[in-house]
Simulated scan of single mutants.
Amino acid sequence: MTNPHAGWYPDPTGAAQQRFWDGEQWTNAIAAPTVIAVPVPVRPAKDWAQRHPAWTTLIVFWIVCMIWQWEWLAPTLALTAAAAWSIRWLRRRNARLAADAERQDALLAEGDERGIYGDYPPADAA
């Protein structure tokens, strides 16, 4: 060995590892090479419809045929959707009105006139 300093050096046998040189001779201490882990990108999981496009197409086609065959089904679904949308709209409107009432109550408790008239005071009060 031409290097008199002790340390880890490539194995003189040519193996893909390092061997320790104690300054006078090679020891039996062997270090495996450092393994660099390369992350592999993971594809996003597909939902059922993306994994089974043929079945999805068949099911959609079957539903369309049933709606076409059963004339009563389309208006029933439309009325059900309209009712669900109306209920949702009413709940949001009531929540908005309740939040406005709470805000006006807090303003009234602080002595602010907006708590009496809201955001639209009468013309003579302004």
Rank of each mutant, 00 (worst) to 15 (best):
E24F: 05
A126W: 09
I30P: 04
L90P: 01
A74N: 12
Q104N: 15
W55A: 15
E71L: 07
A31P: 01
A15D: 04
Y120I: 08
D11T: 10
A49G: 03
I30R: 00
A16D: 12
R114S: 11
C65Y: 01
L107V: 05
A78H: 04
R91A: 15
V35I: 15
A37P: 02
T56P: 02
D47L: 00
W85N: 07
P75T: 05
D100K: 13
C65I: 03
A49T: 12
R43D: 13
A15Y: 03
A98C: 00
A106T: 05
E24Y: 10
L58W: 05
A99H: 00
P33R: 12
R88S: 15
P10G: 03
L97P: 00
V42H: 04
N3H: 07
E24M: 06
V60Q: 12
Q69G: 08
S86L: 15
P12C: 03
E102I: 09
A6Y: 01
G7T: 02
R92P: 01
D100Q: 15
T2M: 03
T80N: 14
R91W: 04
Q25G: 06
Q50V: 06
D22Q: 02
V60I: 14
M66Y: 01
W85H: 03
R96P: 00
H5M: 12
A83H: 12
L58M: 09
G118F: 11
W48I: 07
C65K: 11
T2V: 06
L107Q: 13
R96C: 03
L108H: 07
K46W: 05
F20T: 01
C65T: 05
A15R: 10
G111W: 04
W70A: 08
P41G: 04
D105W: 14
A74S: 11
T34K: 13
T13D: 10
W89T: 09
A78W: 08
L77W: 14
A123G: 02
I67E: 09
D124V: 11
N3K: 07
E102C: 04
H52Q: 12
A109V: 05
T57C: 05
V60A: 14
L108D: 02
G14W: 04
A78V: 14
P4Q: 04
W68I: 15
G118K: 02
G118N: 01
I63N: 05
W85C: 03
E71K: 11
I30E: 02
R114M: 00
W85D: 11
T80Y: 07
P12K: 07
Q25M: 08
G7Y: 10
L58G: 14
E71Y: 03
Y117D: 07
P121R: 09
Q104P: 00
D47E: 05
T13F: 00
T27W: 03
P41C: 08
L58R: 13
W89S: 13
T76I: 06
W68Y: 10
W8E: 03
A83T: 13
I87T: 08
E71G: 14
I63C: 15
A54E: 15
I67V: 13
N28A: 11
A54Y: 03
W26I: 04
R96G: 02
P122F: 08
A84N: 11
